[in-house]
Design a protein around this nucleic acid. Sequence first.
DNA 1: CCTAGTTCCTGGTATATACCAGATTCTGGC
DNA 2: GCCAGAATCTGGTATATACCAGGAACTAGG
Lengths: 231, 231
Amino acid sequence: MAGYQEAAERIAARIAAGELKPGVKLGSERQLSEQMSVSRLTLRAALIKLEADGLVYGKSRRGWFVSPPRFVYDLGRRANYKTMAAAQERSAQIDLLDSGLAASRELPSCMREHGLTRAFLLRRVRHLDGRSVMFESIYLSAEAVPGLLKHNLADSITELLRDDYRIEIDREDTSVRSALLDSMQAEALAVAPATHGVLIERRRFAAGRLIEFDTEHWLPGAIEIRLSVEP
Amino acid sequence: MAGYQEAAERIAARIAAGELKPGVKLGSERQLSEQMSVSRLTLRAALIKLEADGLVYGKSRRGWFVSPPRFVYDLGRRANYKTMAAAQERSAQIDLLDSGLAASRELPSCMREHGLTRAFLLRRVRHLDGRSVMFESIYLSAEAVPGLLKHNLADSITELLRDDYRIEIDREDTSVRSALLDSMQAEALAVAPATHGVLIERRRFAAGRLIEFDTEHWLPGAIEIRLSVEP
DNA sequence: CCTAGTTCCTGGTATATACCAGATTCTGGC
DNA sequence: GCCAGAATCTGGTATATACCAGGAACTAGG
């Protein structure tokens, strides 16, 4: 009786008991598998399941760690990332990987449907307590934000639109689903290729015009999405 | 050069080309792995990745199938499941697995915090085009809905509350995250044990009182959550 | 023609083994 | 004491093999 389910339960129990604290690195896979008398593949299966459940997370070729609490992403409140993180007593950081005009080939179809032909594309990685947890691609209508690249692009885009361009977002369509990370995203987040994640897509409008299209790939154990509605 | 990534791409290409249509069963794992000149484990890894991306789905011990389009779950519109499914031209069905008073041990903590001591528990499975896609556990405050078990529990609970109990939900707190299915849920949905899924939790209030607590475990490839907000 | 029981097939799980490339650690030279 | 290069360790991937229990298909009996 040495299945991955049992191995997962034993590790989960050690975490629940407080024996292993968030951020702590588990031993190496070979080491753990020997300790628990299972093969390395079985141990790996257990870790991958625990990762999907948000109890541990793996950093590619760097080991497995006990997960901190999920970041709570409130779709209702329009607070920016760093403010939300501060409210949860966590440190946040945004890295700009890439910025420029999107090639017309790679213009998202939803922008083309709205008659847009040119857009800026930003690629960013968001960190939480030093860990990279989200990869985002932001498309901004080039007509709406001329000279975008001269601005600070490593902070809240909402605030940039409001303060520098006087654009107030008045509608936001959000979509959430499960999706794989492509190789660029996986590498940027230092996770195994083809890790699965939570994909949030947002279309943001001002005065009926599509201003921004945004895809956010979150590591699945790192986020919890919340929403309060009053019909 | 025979990795799971390449195998996944080849299968994805066949689906994208329309060669394999939604609902169609792929060959057996042994058969496919031989065709593609990879080991069965490698082929399985490819299928599991494709499943996380929503292109195929596995039914435990029954094979792998090409996924139909995701069910679009609009959090904003308060339409019921069957209506939403009909609008998407899909057939929906709800099975009641279990109903009764919840043991006080298994009363969810959020209900206890609201001073509730007794609740009904319903377990249901929702189907889409004949495929089971979601497992839900519904806790209803026993004070709010006396004699609940005499009613039809295989249809919209919202409508039951409104029509039979004159309870109008005026606030709904929703939470979405990634989570594993437990063995009961996996069995009811006919998927492999410890499959990962999308967990939607809802707390529903009427006149400031918690009426209902609901957990919905969706198969990850079967659902897309949408929301439109106008600040 | 329908049913019950047997057989075969399938996916789910487990093992041992191997190799690669990126991270980390160690070590020798300056 | 610092730095660059080498050796080592680690996770990621791939193979072959094996067994089990649930599903599906077939077959024999009514």
